[in-house]
Design a binder for these strands. Structure first.
Lengths: 180, 180
DNA sequence: GTCATCATGTAATCTGTTACATGATTTC
DNA sequence: GAAATCATGTAACAGATTACATGATGAC
């Protein structure tokens, strides 16, 4: 039975799948785990987590089991399925899957894929950032001496500074990964 | 008559107000103007622009007038009202207004406010970034030598690199603004 | 006695995107 | 003859947030 992946999954769904790939968790725990790990680059509302989890179950990507507790409210613990792992891995390995801002999230889950995949993704994104930087530089030449565009120039330089930092970071990481 | 600002305006609404503060435009033109100016930091879908404009009119922040054309489809040209300018300026000057990612957009419109306001905003945000950086550094110490957190460490270093670039940029701009 | 933590969710709302729909005119 | 530009919008949907609702327990 080929359970097709109907719609492509949202960032939140994939991030949750990723966290579940390290071990089973309840919604409540996932919120905590997310905050303590990916928190600074992805932190969903708890209601969103609770909304997503049942969808993962109906999509066959996770299973749920009820855990009754005496002193605490009952939990619903979610565990990733084999299909869930497959879908997550496909997403991780597909350089074009998902919105472009998933770069860091995928990188965060780098342990779940091969070093070559990670290197390829960084190189790919690096080329994009380099192209953006070149474009910014060409705009810079037009704006630099135009007093009325001063604040446009200031924001542009922000973009340039960030892009340059990005490239330096990428080169450092790529050099490191080459030694692994 | 105190026409209260009911809900606070969305980024798109404010950005459009900002563009209109330079002169009247149709929806179609706004899309072009946006792309050619703020494009690299904010670029809405055209359907969104068309959805927002009538709302600005009903909120009393802009007026519309029909411009019949012979060779081209008729236009609807929007012009900012005095109240619209006030609302836009309030937003520009309020350091806490709007979502945190409006920093660059507000900076882009720096010409529409005083240098002191701009300086204050940069300084304010600079302090936040510095605090974030300090936090990242403290996490770094915990993660640095933990092989299983390697990719968390890599993404963290991305954040550190960006934050450092941010601070350098801010210092450069602040020095420049001090000479104005 | 009060507050944080554990634990789950619904409902309403917002912000925004993509796809669809139309059609004349100018440029190559 | 084809493609880009001018010009406006609707409809559907996606993705996510905030506010609301509940309630026991453990720590201070």
């Amino acid at each position: 039975m080929a359970t097709a992946t109907r719609t492509r999954l949202s960032t939140t769904e994939l991030a949750i799948l990723g966290l579940l790939s390290y071990g089973e968790h309840s919604g409540y725990e996932l919120k905590k785990v997310a905050e303590a790990s990916v928190g600074y680059l992805w932190s969903p509302a708890k209601s969103h987590i609770y909304a997503v989890l049942p969808r993962l179950v109906t999509a066959g990507l996770a299973t749920a089991r009820e855990v009754p507790q005496r002193t605490r409210p009952d939990k619903r613990i979610y565990r990733i399925t084999a299909q869930g792992r497959r879908v997550f891995r496909d997403w991780l390995e597909d350089p074009g899957a998902g919105p472009p801002n998933t770069f860091l999230l995928k990188l965060f889950f780098g342990r779940k894929t091969s070093t070559e995949t990670v290197v390829a993704r960084i190189e790919r994104r690096r080329a994009e950032v380099e192209a953006e930087l070149a474009e910014y530089r060409s705009i810079e030449d037009l704006v630099r001496d135009d007093e009325s565009s001063y604040f446009g120039y200031v924001t542009l330089r922000w973009g340039i500074a960030q892009a340059e930092a990005w490239l330096r970071w990428a080169d450092e990481i790529l050099a490191e990964l080459a030694l692994r």
